[in-house]
């Protein structure tokens, strides 16, 4: 696997993990796991310790724990993995299936158009709405120079 496809995979895994579960379920409806899929790691929820650095460069500290659901599935010759924040088992399963299908060159373009494109548009819309909401509450501070 060359670096560019590695990067592409990281991007679609991120997109799938951050998707709205209902939208992902709708987009993935025609791509359910086939009966011969092997659930290498059935979806399981656990805790991940989030760590940060003070100011981005300082000493590491434990920020807190986040629940994460992970899942791995083998479909044909491809193994799909997913790590999803929260405890939505179905979300992790669908994301793992999508990851496995997307590695299949024969199906990649179809999934890209039918699954990734709508999710990307939806993520963009969510971000746009959030930044608009934030921009609407922007306050301009100014000081009046006190005259003597």
């Amino acid at each position: 696997m060359d670096t560019s496809s590695h990067l592409a995979r990281a991007q679609w895994m991120s997109l799938l993990a951050q998707a709205e579960p209902a939208e992902l379920a709708q987009a993935m409806a025609p791509y359910a796991a086939p009966p011969d899929a092997i659930w290498l790691r059935p979806a399981q929820t656990g805790l991940y310790m989030l760590r940060g650095r003070i100011g981005g460069t300082g000493a590491r500290f434990n920020l807190g724990e986040a629940s994460v659901t992970r899942c791995s599935v083998q479909i044909g010759a491809h193994v799909g993995h997913a790590w999803v924040r929260g405890s939505d088992v179905r979300h992790a399963e669908l994301a793992a299936c999508a990851d496995a299908w997307l590695q299949d060159h024969a199906r990649h373009a179809r999934l890209e158009a039918q699954v990734l494109a709508p999710l990307r548009a939806s993520r963009h819309a969510r971000r746009d709405a959030a930044s608009r909401k934030a921009a609407a509450s922007k306050v301009e501070f100014f000081t009046v120079v006190r005259g003597e």
Binding site: I38, L40, R41, A77, V79
Partner: peptide, 10 residues
């Protein structure tokens, strides 16, 4: 081709 492990790991 990979294989699964325990059906119920815990």
């Amino acid at each position: 081709m990979m294989l699964a492990a325990f059906a119920d790991p815990v």
